[in-house]
Structures are given as C-alpha cells and as structure tokens.
Nucleic acid binder design. Structure first.
Lengths: 337, 337
DNA sequence: TTGTAAGCGTTATCAA
DNA sequence: TTGATAACGCTTACAA
C-alpha cells in the first residue's frame, strides 16, 4: 500500500495524505480523521526510503566498532543506540572484527547509505586512508582515537591518567618490579596507557626496563603469551598492569596455570571494569571507564553537529580506579609484617 | 556528486555510468576505463537510497534484541552481522532494553525502513500484537522464541535437553536433593529448562518437590534471593541448577556469603558459558549454548528466505555440557570413599 | 555499444 | 484547505 494508492481509495490527492500525516494542522479536521482512519485500517506505513531520498536525510547513523562482543564496545554501543533512538535516529552497526579491510568496507558502505553521521570506534586506518573514502560532509565522531581528521568530534578516555593511577596503586603497595602487558603502541589506547605506566615509574624514581614490558594486540591469546614472557624473565615482576580486559583474561589464565596465587604471588590490575572482573577469584582491581557516559557523549556530540554546530569538540573522560582483591603488597613486604 | 553530474562531466549518458559500475561487460572497454577513472578522481559514491528506492530492495536487515550488553545477545549479534555482511547486507540494530514498548517501536521503524528481513531475538510481545504491526511480507527469523506467526523461521536451543543433561550430571554424581533456580515460566527459556529439570528427576525415580524450586527473573539479584530461599529449607539441596548466567552470579555470591565451599558443600551448575564462568573459583560447570552457530543459522535462514524459500523452517541446537570444577559428589558419598 | 525516458514513493512548491 | 506537478538519484526497458 503506497501513498498514491491510498489517495485513490480516498479520492484525495497524495499531497493531502502526506500533509495529514506530517503537518496535521494544515488539513481540515474532517479529512484528517478520514485519512488517519484509512491509514490505520489498511495499516499503511510510509516508505522511509522514498522519504529519505526526497528529504535528503536518512535519520540514520552508522556505528563502526572493532568488536561487538567486547563488553567495552557493547556497552558503548548500547548507550549510543539508546540516546540516538530517543531522538528518532536508528543505528546501522558494523563490526570491523579488528580488520582494517572490513573497517574501510564498512565506512564506504555507510557513505553510500547516506547515513546522517558516523560514530567511529575503531582505530585501524590512518586519517589519510579515511579521507580518501570520500565521506564528504558526513559528520564523524571518533571514540577512543583522535585521527586528526578535520571537522571531527572526539570522545576520549584519559588513558595516561588511568594507567598512572593503576601503576601508582601498585607502587604504593610496595611493588618495585611492575610488569606491563601493553597494546600496540600505534593505537592511542596502546601508547597512552604505556606512557602512563612509564611516567608513573619514572616519577617514583624507577627506571623502566624493557624486559618488564610485553606487547599484545588487545586480544586474549596475546595476553596469555605476554604473561608467559614476563614470568620467564630472569627476575619476574611481582605485579602486572594489563592494558585491556581481553588480554587480562589471557594473562589471568596463564597465571593460574602457572600455579601462582593472586594476590599473594602476583598482583594483577587491568583496564576495563567488565562484569567477569567482579566474579573472578580474586575479584580484579581495575581501571574503570565510564562506558555509558562515553556512549551518550558520542551520541550527543553527533546530534549537536547535526543541529548545526561546526567547531570540532573533544570530550575527555576520567577513568576510575576500582580496588578489589587482586592487588596486594608483594610477598617480601607482606610477609615480614 | 551525482550520477547525472558525472555524466555531464564525461559527456555520456547517466545510463552509461550506471552500466559501467553495475554491468561492466555491457560497456566498451574504453568508456569503462574513462568512467571508472572519473569515479575514482571525483570519489563518486552511488546513492544507496536512490538505488534502494528504484530496486525495491534495501539490502538491509533489522535486528531486535532485548539487551545488547548481555553476552548471549552480543555473541549472537556479532555472528549475524558477520554472516550477513559477507553477503552484502547491513544490519540495523535495535535494543529493546527489555521493554515491549521499545520493541514495538523498533519493529514499526524497521517496517518503514523497508528492511529486507528481520531477526527477532526478544520475547516481549505476543504474535497478535506483532501481526498488527503490519510487517506485511517482510521475512522474520525468531531467535529463542517461537511466536507461531505464519511464515516465520525459528532458531531455538533445546532447553529441555540442556536442563536434563545438567540435572542428569548431578544425579550421576550421586545427588538426590537437587534444587533449581528457574526463570519465569511464561518464557520458553524459563519453562523449557524447568521441564528438563522435572523430567530428569522423574526419570531417575525422584519426585520433584516444590520446596526445591525457586523462581527468579533471569537477573542477578533474583538469583541471590532464590539461593537464599533454597538454603533456608528444612532439608536444603546438595546441588543447584541455575537457569541462566545472571542468576548464577547472584546464587554464587550468596553461597559464598553463606560460607559454603564449592563443590564440597554444594554443587552448582548453570546455563550459558560466559567468560567469567571459567575464571571463578571453582570454575563453573555449565550448559553451553553454541552462540556463533545460532547466530549464523539465523542469518542463513534469512538469506535462504530472501533467495526464495517459502516453507517455514526451524533449527534446534543442542547445548553442550561443559564439566568444570563446581560439581562433585555430595559429601555423604564423597567422604566415605 | 550507447542514449532516451519512465518510474520507484515520497515531499514541497505553487496555484487554485 | 486542497490539488497538480516537479523533483530526489538511481536503474532498466526500449530505441537507436
């Protein structure tokens, strides 16, 4: 059932139906009733595609994230979806599966779909590659990255601060050999957290040692490998700081397999307050990111842009240290007491 | 930049450009090159909206789930997105936030967006309410529910079997007083798992006792309450079967607070192999659902429909019992040995 | 091999 | 207050 068919049925012009639906005040009460009744009776639904074409506006925004199953992203996506749908926007969600190819395909697709805006939470491609995608005038909000593309808003976490507070916590407990499992330094989440770690150590008068830093790719398996590597050093750390939750899961498994008892034999602290962190034994001390707030902020920034704001805006969120039971003083300090 | 503008630039007809892009073999090599170069140079992107309108096909499917943050759904959504995007469909994701109102709004919206199909993973509204939404000819695949709507495909888990294998496992270990923390019986996931529990007991010649069954709403707090209730009975169970992961988290906390040691004092088994189940102490024995397979199956069923299949199809998946360390023989059996 | 022209279902402009 | 009509940007008969 289309507008025209309905119009013929009611013996009015298509324009009248359209008006009765979109600007009811421009139509006489009598016809309005008649139209609305017919709409209900025939369960007529306007064709959003046709409307979008005509209006040059899709009321749709695209989300690109690297892994929907990662609680970090699913938390943010949920908040975004919630905020946008309250403003009559719908979300097209693309999972880049940690792949640059999929990311670029997704962005290209979103460009063709003429989404009203894009929220981009994946740090694969460089800004030049993105610009070449020809996303023209589509407003973009970046989460957890700042590509430097002109006219782009950004939602960030203060990664340096988060890492510092984590490492400071370990230092305060008396640890001096603190290991780190870092993400790839080419990502801001990788380099920022690494930098926070380095700064905290230096500020405490400890010179960082390359031996105590292992690199992963933010995924579980790499966390396990990195933990193994740290344990195999001549003088292993008494505490580990892990740059994200997935790698922390891997590291934890490795520590358990190695027969280490937490926190007596090893303190562990990681980024992201995912649900399982609370249920593990021992419950994990973590640096929590305010996911809901960050997702809402991203959605808000986009809505403001769509409403006309033009100056690039950046919002930086503060992480919160949540102390649980996976961190404690190191043995040689703890036992004598 | 539109097709027509590009055509003027190249001094060819719009049709030629369209053909060069969509049916390159219908165009001379020379013009094809010329067109493709111009497309690149001006980074022209076809307008997907216009194409959809013209073709009457959006290459888009809608997903409606009750909670994106729940690992069960995010796992399924990821698999669906992955499968569909490989077939050039994109996903519009709607989170119903456990609310019937949002669910119906979402479905209505998807109808207007003229999605090619819908995958529906939320058990809020009845089939009559859904039919009234006038989703007309849009194919629907339902996950974890079977509303009975005509022309609908279904992906299910064999909940009865899953519950039976869980309870059978406990019975084989020698338990005779097995408690259950059930979900709401009005949901198929609630009633199915309860039925499996009852059947397993009866088959073993044990008459189920109302005292040993506590009901929750699939959320954490209710699991804790239910566990407390079971512990307070005159003759408490020696093992508990919990119908989902959230309630299991609550139950586990309650058992720990009660000072019970697992599995010596109490065996615990739950549905859903979420990540934390592996890291808790002791690691939880669970009934695992094949999320990826289920998501893929849902996507496949939809693709088949879109390719022309008409007979309603239902795919039932078998859960898998994953035995870890939270289940063991009851004390009176275990100690004498 | 290429061009012409109709039309997908709306909304918006202009007249009546 | 209503109606006729022209877009929106693309694809596809049909014609040349």
């Amino acid at each position: 059932m289309t507008l025209v068919e309905l119009a013929q049925l009611l013996q009015v012009s298509p324009a009248t139906i359209s008006r009765a639906l979109n600007r009811p005040e421009m139509v006489s009460a009598r016809t309005r009733e008649r139209v609305l009744k017919a709409v209900r009776d025939h369960s007529y639904r306007p064709n959003g595609i046709a409307r979008s074409l005509r209006k040059g506006e899709t009321q749709t925004v695209g989300l690109v994230v690297s892994d929907l199953q990662n609680p970090f992203y699913s938390g943010i996506v949920k908040a975004i979806e919630h905020t946008l749908s309250a403003h009559d926007y719908s979300c097209i969600v693309c999972d880049a599966s940690e792949s640059q190819g999929k990311e670029q395909r997704a962005l290209k697709l979103l460009g063709e779909l003429k989404v009203s805006g894009i929220i981009h939470g994946f740090s694969g491609s460089g800004s030049d590659e993105l610009e070449r995608l020809g996303l023209d005038g589509i407003p973009i909000v970046e989460i957890d990255r700042a590509s430097g593309m002109p006219g782009t808003d950004t939602v960030l976490l203060d990664n340096v601060l988060g890492a510092r507070s984590a490492v400071d916590h370990l230092l305060e407990l008396g640890h001096t050999r603190v290991g780190m499992i870092s993400g790839p330094p080419r990502l801001t989440t990788g380099s920022g957290r690494l930098e926070g770690y380095l700064r905290a150590l230096r500020q405490a008068g400890i010179e960082p040692s390359d031996e105590l830093i292992a690199y992963g790719d933010f995924r579980e398996a790499s966390g396990r490998n990195a933990a193994r590597k740290l344990l195999a050093t001549r003088s292993p750390p008494t505490a580990m700081f892990v740059a994200n939750n997935e790698m922390a899961a891997g590291a934890l498994a490795e520590l358990q397999d190695a027969g280490l008892e937490l926190p007596a034999d090893m303190s562990l602290i990681s980024f992201d307050d995912v649900r399982w962190a609370r249920y593990v034994t021992p419950p994990l001390t973590v640096v929590a990111q305010p996911l809901r707030e960050m997702g809402e902020a991203a959605a808000r920034l986009l809505l403001e842009r769509l409403a006309g704001r033009t100056d690039p805006t950046r919002r930086v969120f503060q992480p919160e240290l949540v102390i649980r039971q996976s961190t404690a003083p190191p043995r040689r300090v703890g036992i004598p007491a």
